[in-house]
Design a protein around this nucleic acid. Structure first.
Lengths: 110, 110
DNA sequence: AACAAATACATAGTATAACAAAGTATATAT
DNA sequence: ATATATACTTTGTTATACTATGTATTTGTT
């Protein structure tokens, strides 16, 4: 099989899919920290996200005011940076969902 | 609304989606030329593909032996380069569909 | 006690693909 | 004559995922 091509394709597909996934999850469940998001997405979708992908992604979402973050000290261990979606983030993910569903409808109709 | 962000997102989402869409359409309907694919996809999905996006994309698919092309002279007008999907292209789009459906299932379950 | 692995975040450099813009060429409509 | 539609191509820019590396703490293993 052409696995190398598929792997490159998966990497490209993530550009766009990941921000949509993260915002969708945060819209639904409010509170996540980065490291946990990586594991949660892996558990739910088998999509592996490199740490070097997720942390810069979260910073971009924050720069765009789609999420906010707060540091939370732990009684034991390293502090976690928790993310919450904003009102603007919810509006954005609603728009994304429309676009996604439109593409999906077409794919399924082929 | 945060339209600028959405527009950038749509552009990123196309990285991966377009090759999947093109291969899916070719799998279903065999024969298309580039210019026609742009219009067909626009008609079906409202996704606008720049010419500077589609033609290099088709060349990549050809380099990967997922499609083959042939020039067809027209009785009037400019010659068209027609594309057909290969056996390897069909295998690839089947794999892509599995991955896509997996993501989609997750999105819908949120 | 020493070391590996897991947790948790961050950043620099590389590769990929969409896009805008420009170009070539033919045919048709104004 | 000029603009628009058809049809393909190429160059330079931009955005984002990935690899690799780094910091720091806690837990499990030998």
């Amino acid at each position: 099989m052409n696995n190398e091509f598929i792997n490159k394709w998966i990497s490209q597909l993530k550009k766009g899919t990941l921000s949509f996934l993260v915002l969708s999850i945060l819209k639904d469940e409010k509170e996540y920290y980065g490291y946990d998001l990586i594991n949660e997405i892996k558990k739910r979708t088998a999509i592996e996200i490199a740490e070097g992908t997720l942390y810069p992604l979260m910073n971009r979402l924050k720069d765009e005011n789609l999420v906010v973050s707060k540091w939370v000290e732990q009684s034991s261990g390293i502090p976690r940076k928790y993310y919450n979606i904003t009102a603007s983030g919810i509006d954005t993910v609603v728009e994304m969902t429309k676009y996604w569903n439109n593409i999906n409808k077409t794919i399924n109709s082929i």
